[in-house]
């Protein structure tokens, strides 16, 4: 992996993802790299979800994460990245990229509570 790509991977790893509507939609839990032997590696996608952060934990915890949160992993192609600053800004909406699935499930729970759409004054 070239120094530039190593730097890029470090710069985006564990940074917040923001979709085209400006909404947070997860963290960069891992990065996907591609390249042949002898050539430099490239960041090809960002990986999001317990299937991406679980393997970064010690073995016993990895098993626990798999049991409790599953192994869902969403792949965001690098071409979807608009720019990188404190946060990683994406070109598309979270729903189009398959992000924020659990957020939508949680919304169904909140929908049971009255006045869940009000913005507190």
């Amino acid at each position: 992996m070239s120094r530039r790509h190593l730097g890029l991977a470090c710069e985006v790893l564990d940074h917040e993802l923001v979709d085209s509507d400006g909404l947070p939609c997860g963290m960069v839990d891992d990065v996907e790299l591609a390249g042949d032997l002898g050539s430099s590696l490239k960041v090809t996608a960002l990986l999001v979800g317990p299937g991406a952060w679980g393997p970064r934990l010690p073995a016993l915890l990895r098993l626990l994460v798999r049991l409790v949160w599953g192994a869902r992993r969403t792949r965001v192609p690098w071409a979807e990245v608009e720019h990188v600053a404190e946060r990683v800004h994406l070109r598309s909406r979270a729903t189009e990229l398959g992000l924020g699935v659990r957020e939508r499930k949680a919304r169904r729970w909140i929908a049971w509570i009255p006045l869940n759409e009000h913005e507190p004054q």
């Binding site: 957020e103 949680a106 909140i110 509570i113 869940n116 759409e117 507190p120």
Partner: peptide, 10 residues
């Protein structure tokens, strides 16, 4: 609104 940040609210 809670519906816009549901996991946070939960």
């Amino acid at each position: 609104a809670p519906a816009q940040a549901p996991r946070f609210a939960l």
